[in-house]
Simulated scan of single mutants.
Amino acid sequence: MLRRAFISALPLTLLAGPSLAAGAPPKEKAAGGQYVDISPVALPVVARDLVVNYVFVAVRLNLSQVANIQKLREREPFFRDALVRAGHRTPFTSKTDYLSLDVERLKAVMLKEAVRLGGKDIQSVSVMSQTAKRRTGVPKPPSA
């Protein structure tokens, strides 16, 4: 029985070898730069001094080519803490939608905090994803 399974799997293994070797390069090399991904955090959406929603945000810090990536990746918990503190101090609530955040303001504040914590090697901030905790039952913003 084991012999039959081996014989039937052999052609599939031979076919899979060249296709794996010709595959795309890993993501880090394809991106072309160095970065530190911050674990997703939940940031509040506040309207009229009430929390109406939470948005889970994944952020990436883009680094210069000469940055010490290992040192900066070790500081990821500090970057995440700075993001959470900034998001609770002055929420990044969007004026037009309570299902997402004001990305430009979030990027500006996070860049300032990241440079303060990690130095001049941090070039920019990218928001990779935003996912609202609640999609229904959220009040409409006044400007919508």
Score class of each variant (00 low, 15 high):
1 M>S: 13
2 L>F: 03
3 R>T: 14
4 R>Y: 11
7 I>V: 15
7 I>T: 15
9 A>C: 15
9 A>Y: 13
10 L>K: 15
10 L>Y: 15
11 P>E: 00
12 L>H: 14
14 L>M: 01
15 L>R: 08
15 L>Q: 12
17 G>W: 10
17 G>I: 09
18 P>L: 05
19 S>I: 15
22 A>H: 14
23 G>M: 15
23 G>T: 12
25 P>S: 06
28 E>C: 06
28 E>I: 06
29 K>I: 10
29 K>H: 04
29 K>Y: 07
31 A>Q: 03
31 A>D: 14
31 A>S: 07
32 G>C: 02
37 D>E: 11
40 P>R: 09
40 P>W: 02
41 V>N: 11
42 A>C: 01
44 P>Y: 03
44 P>T: 02
45 V>P: 05
45 V>R: 05
45 V>F: 07
47 A>M: 00
48 R>L: 13
49 D>C: 01
50 L>N: 13
51 V>Y: 00
53 N>Q: 07
54 Y>I: 05
54 Y>K: 06
54 Y>E: 01
54 Y>G: 08
58 A>D: 02
58 A>S: 09
58 A>H: 11
60 R>D: 08
60 R>L: 04
60 R>I: 05
61 L>D: 04
62 N>D: 09
63 L>G: 03
64 S>F: 09
66 V>L: 13
68 N>T: 05
70 Q>P: 09
71 K>E: 00
73 R>E: 03
74 E>F: 08
75 R>F: 12
75 R>M: 03
76 E>D: 09
78 F>N: 03
80 R>V: 12
82 A>D: 08
84 V>A: 00
86 A>S: 12
86 A>G: 11
87 G>I: 06
88 H>M: 14
89 R>Y: 14
89 R>Q: 14
90 T>Y: 11
91 P>M: 08
91 P>F: 02
92 F>T: 12
95 K>F: 12
96 T>A: 07
98 Y>I: 14
99 L>M: 10
99 L>F: 02
100 S>R: 13
102 D>V: 01
103 V>F: 06
105 R>F: 05
107 K>E: 03
108 A>N: 04
108 A>D: 07
110 M>Q: 08
112 K>C: 07
113 E>D: 10
116 R>H: 08
120 K>H: 02
121 D>Y: 00
121 D>F: 01
124 S>K: 02
125 V>L: 09
126 S>Y: 03
128 M>I: 15
130 Q>Y: 12
131 T>I: 12
136 T>W: 14
137 G>P: 00
140 K>H: 08
140 K>W: 04
141 P>Q: 08
141 P>F: 11
144 A>F: 04
